[in-house]
């Protein structure tokens, strides 16, 4: 554990809690992509199955349980409790275009051919692109609520901080995992446009709207 990894995790946790807070407080999931949330739930479920097979630390297990619970909770709020507020007309990205390639790639580029390892690799690849339906939705509606922007910023920062963590781990532990690094870089690049808008608009007190 290093400072970049810890900040990354906390940023990830903040993002997930911000989203739940937004939905609960406004009693609405307007502007939030249910497809992205579904993809994240698939990601956590595929990756954290290792809760049953290996123990790393209390910190790790607790975080995994929180991420899983929060993602299923978000789905419950979006598709059940506040379903009438879900803006599905604008949430039209085809997620099979993300799931199928991620699945195929996880059979091609993987460290070890075991079920758990392929599921873990699939989760890494799928996570890299899981935000696309949400970004597509923002581009379709042309705007995002400020709290949604904060959510996206925290979520994007998490993997960017992980990249710093991997650089740090490379120099201090000689640790290098190209699967997570390449996927993490793709994931962070997808947020670049959004980061730019966030810094130039939201941080100056303006609402995020596209030109």
């Amino acid at each position: 554990m290093n400072i970049f990894r810890l900040c990354g995790d906390l940023s990830h946790l903040l993002a997930i809690l911000l989203l739940l807070f937004k939905i609960w407080k406004t009693r609405s999931c307007a502007g939030i992509s249910g497809k992205t949330q579904l993809l994240f739930t698939i990601v956590y479920t595929a990756r954290y199955l290792d809760l049953f097979t290996s123990f790393v630390s209390v910190y790790n297990s607790v975080m995994k349980i929180v991420f899983l619970t929060a993602s299923y909770g978000t789905l419950y709020l979006m598709f059940y409790k506040f379903k009438p507020t879900y803006d599905h007309n604008h949430d039209s990205f085809r997620i099979l275009y993300l799931i199928v390639p991620a699945l195929v790639l996880s059979f091609i580029i993987v460290h070890v051919y075991t079920v758990m390892e392929i599921l873990w690799t699939f989760s890494i690849y799928l996570e890299a692109v899981a935000i696309m339906p949400q970004l597509f939705m923002v581009s379709r509606t042309g705007e995002a609520e400020t709290i949604t922007s904060h959510y996206l910023f925290a979520l994007g920062s998490y993997r960017a901080l992980y990249i710093l963590n991997w650089i740090y781990r490379y120099y201090t532990e000689d640790f290098l995992d190209w699967i997570t690094i390449m996927a993490g870089i793709v994931q962070t690049i997808l947020y670049c446009d959004f980061f730019y808008l966030y810094i130039t608009k939201v941080l100056k007190g303006k609402r995020l709207s596209l030109p």
């Binding site: 990894r5 995790d9 990830h12 290792d50 290996s54 790393v56 630390s57 790790n60 975080m63 995994k64 991420f67 460290h111 070890v112 390892e117 873990w120 992980y162 963590n165 640790f175 290098l176 995992d177 190209w178 699967i179 997570t180």
Partner: peptide, 10 residues
Amino acid sequence: VKSDEAHDEL
């Protein structure tokens, strides 16, 4: 690189 090492990350 053994993939196990990566699994200590979230």
